[in-house]
């Protein structure tokens, strides 16, 4: 079957998760008070960012390490590093 949802897409990928997040929202108040769109929750290709009412939940485990959130955050509020060597996403095909 061809995938229909993001969950199905993410399920196809191999991840070697680190125990610590390589993505950090620097100030959750900025998301709450200055950023009505919370656009990272929209354009992130893996829906890593989810707004939970008062803070941004960061599901770094499913991150593709593309860098969009770092560049696209209108407030430069995301600290973006690479996961520890050998960790994170492991593409097998393309």
């Amino acid at each position: 079957m061809s995938t229909k949802t993001l969950e199905e897409k993410q399920y196809l990928i191999r991840f070697k998760c680190d125990t610590k997040s390589h993505l950090t929202v620097l100030d959750h108040d900025v998301c709450m008070t200055q950023c009505p769109d919370k656009i990272c929750t929209v354009f992130c290709p893996a829906e890593v960012y989810k707004w939970e009412g008062t803070r941004m939940q960061v599901g770094y485990e499913g991150c593709h390490e593309c860098g969009s959130c770092r560049i696209g955050c209108p407030y430069q509020n995301i600290k973006w590093e690479y996961p520890k060597g050998g960790h994170g996403i492991v593409f097998r095909l393309a």
Binding site: M1, S2, T3, E8, K9, Q10, L12, I13, P45, A46, H64, C66, G67, S68, I71, F91, R92, L93, A94
Partner: peptide, 14 residues
């Protein structure tokens, strides 16, 4: 063109 195909991987990149 893709009918009946089986998704094998999903990838995002800049």
């Amino acid at each position: 063109l893709i009918e009946g195909g089986e998704s094998a991987e999903y990838l995002a990149h800049l």
